[in-house]
């Protein structure tokens, strides 16, 4: 029983973290048809930005609860600046290219950003554990969980709700769905697709950075974290169906629970399980669990 609860809790915590990253990735893909490898760098930028902002803030002797706002601020500023720079400065020169070419473009951006991060923050690890330890721990069925992690679940659920609400209950969101469904027709109907692209990319980048910033207190922030994360996020969105936010949620839960089951039962299979599940899903549902329909060819 204890094991099951531990597995479930860890799985859900991991899934909520995965969801925040994957949501941005899948949103960008859905609207722009760009599988953004640089998303891992957004994550890393959020993590570094969050860690160093929290560091500055606490060194100034301000009240510790403000650190949480520092994390949010870092994600907002970092995601917006980098997202705007990349979309306005680079990606717009590339629109209309093949999806696979766009992967390579974002791969190049990833390589560049990885070094930009090293130039700004150096290669030493950053720690910003205060927001994590500040909230204390909760005992549950004889197990101890960090309250920060539990908070993460709620934050992730909130993000999920906001995304759902924004996409389905607002005018802008519905326009965005029109673009996801059929870009050409949407443009034909007078939707400003170019601006949609910019907005989407920035939102996606902010989500990526937010995932990084929220994770920063729980880990040591060091070079290479973005490269590791992106491949996990890929697995999540591919399982859920590329471009589907609901799919990202389901994918995150599947990957999160599978991984935590592996970690508790057979730790050596940790990575294997994630891609094993992905392979299994793709073998039976090639387009992922929530697929976007395609049109007749002949």
């Amino acid at each position: 029983m204890k094991l099951v609860i531990a597995m479930l809790m860890d799985g859900v915590i991991y899934a909520s973290w995965l969801f925040v990253i994957a949501a941005g990735l899948t949103l960008i893909y859905g609207v722009m048809r760009i599988l953004n490898m640089a998303h891992g760098s957004f994550y890393a930028i959020g993590a570094y930005g969050g860690a160093s902002l929290v560091g500055f803030y606490l060194a100034g002797g301000y009240p510790p609860w403000g650190a949480y706002f520092m994390l949010l601020g870092a994600a907002l500023i970092g995601g917006t600046v980098v997202g705007l720079l990349i979309e306005r400065g680079l990606l717009r020169m590339m629109y209309g290219r093949d999806e696979v070419v766009m992967i390579l473009v974002t791969y190049a951006i990833l390589l560049i950003l990885e070094d930009v991060i090293k130039l700004i923050w150096g290669v030493d690890a950053y720690f910003a554990y205060q927001p994590y330890t500040l909230l204390g721990r909760t005992k549950l069925a004889g197990l101890s969980f960090a309250n920060y992690d539990i908070l993460l679940i709620f934050v992730s659920a909130l993000i999920c709700f906001v995304l759902w609400w924004g996409l389905n209950r607002t005018r802008k969101g519905k326009l965005l769905q029109a673009v996801i469904h059929d870009r050409d027709t949407a443009a034909f109907l007078g939707i400003n697709v170019t601006r949609m692209f910019t907005v989407t990319f920035v939102i996606g980048a902010v989500l990526g950075a937010l995932a990084g910033a929220l994770t920063a207190p729980g880990i040591s922030v060091m070079p290479g974290i973005g490269v590791e994360v992106i491949i996990l996020a890929f697995a999540v969105v591919v399982i859920g169906g590329l471009g589907s936010v609901g799919g990202a949620l389901l994918g995150a839960l599947i990957v999160g629970l599978a991984r935590s089951a592996a970690v508790h039962l057979y730790p050596d299979a940790e990575l294997f399980v994630i891609y094993g599940v992905m392979g299994l899903v793709l073998a039976f549902r090639p387009q992922g669990l929530f697929a976007i329909a395609t049109a007749r060819k002949i």
């Binding site: 599988l35 999806e99 696979v100 992967i103 491949i231 890929f234 697995a235 591919v238 590329l242 730790p267 050596d268 299979a269 940790e270 990575l271 294997f272 994630i274 891609y275 094993g276 992905m278 392979g279 793709l282 090639p286 387009q287």
Partner: peptide
Amino acid sequence: YRDIFFAMFSMAFSMILYGVLVK
């Protein structure tokens, strides 16, 4: 599989090997 699915799926297989070897 085609396009990005081929790309991602082949990547997944290489990551499985990576995951196995690392452990």
